[in-house]
Amino acid sequence: MHKNVNIYVFSGTGNTLLVANKISETFNKNSYNSTVHKMESVKPQDINLNSTIGIGFTTAFWNTFPFVRTWIDSLPDGNGAETFLFTTMGDSSCAMIAHIAKILEKKNYKIIGAKGFIMPNNFLLVLNDAKNIARIEKNLLKAEEYAKGIINGNGYIKKTNIFSSLAFCISSFVTTKIWKTKLAKKIMKFKVDTKKCNGCGTCATLCPTENIEIKDIPQFKDKCIFCLRCASYCPQQALSNKILLKTYRAVNLKDMLWKK
């Protein structure tokens, strides 16, 4: 394993960022030089192949967001770069991480770990604060164990099966095709409570696809991937849509706005 570790992470409401930071912290405590980068701030062709690479992302419908799939599909030839993967989910990912690992193996990345972590649900069935904290603490310990396993050369690698292959095939169609349809975007589109919104622009700053433009109040374009950052971190709680019942955030706004 290379002494320099670069972790590229996409996190919607903070769960994946928490895991990424714990993994990075564990590497640094064991004399490695680890840095966490925002996936949306790094072009795929600019990743550092002369280091151990970590790629972390959120699970969405047994897959991941279209933005993440496009980023991964656009990565250059890995030339044997050691790479570990991790994802966070509210329940099950149907071994999605193993299928992403296969995609990267075809690009000549050497997979040394691929694991999912069950963190608090950020969409439906959002738990109460006490249960969320307990689940976070439990899985951050698992993230630390995962990082130590990678260091010791025995990083856990999730395996595929027939059911997960079928689920990944269906979910890939949904997330790369149906997700982009006008009907899906109409269902997911956010509305602004003009009585609450003060035009602060936090939602636009956080949006990974630059889908929001501030004109007194937020104006939404057609590139939303439903990562929930805007609604979850709106200081005025002024954003909602037809299917978002309750918001959740794993970290505070300052942490979500980190620059690296």
Rank of each mutant, 00 (worst) to 15 (best):
Q237A: 01
K3A: 03
A134Q: 14
C200Q: 04
K148I: 15
R229W: 03
S11T: 13
K22Y: 02
K102V: 09
T83P: 03
L141P: 07
E25W: 02
A20I: 00
F220T: 08
A95L: 09
A81K: 09
Y248A: 13
P76G: 13
V5H: 09
T52G: 04
E213A: 13
W179A: 15
V5N: 11
F27P: 13
T16D: 01
I214K: 05
I157Q: 12
C224Y: 01
A95W: 03
I162Q: 11
K189T: 11
M96A: 15
L206P: 01
I150N: 06
R69M: 14
N33A: 12
I100A: 08
T13A: 00
V5Q: 08
I162G: 06
S232E: 01
L18M: 00
F84L: 10
S51M: 04
V9L: 00
P120I: 02
A114V: 13
Q236F: 01
K180G: 03
Q236W: 00
E105S: 09
P218T: 08
F84T: 14
E145D: 15
T59E: 10
C234W: 03
L257E: 09
W179Q: 14
K196H: 13
N139M: 06
A147H: 10
W258K: 09
N63V: 14
N198R: 07
C227D: 08
N128D: 15
K215D: 05
W179K: 14
V192F: 06
K148M: 15
L125P: 03
W62F: 14
S74D: 15
I112H: 05
G149F: 00
Q237K: 08
E213T: 15
H37T: 01
L183E: 10
K242M: 15
N161G: 14
P66W: 10
K189N: 11
T83Y: 08
A167M: 14
F86A: 08
S24F: 03
E145A: 13
A204N: 03
N211S: 10
L104W: 02
G14P: 12
K158W: 01
H37I: 07
N132C: 06
I151M: 06
K215P: 01
G90H: 04
T35S: 09
A231Y: 07
S172W: 01
I7Q: 09
L18G: 00
E144P: 05
G155E: 04
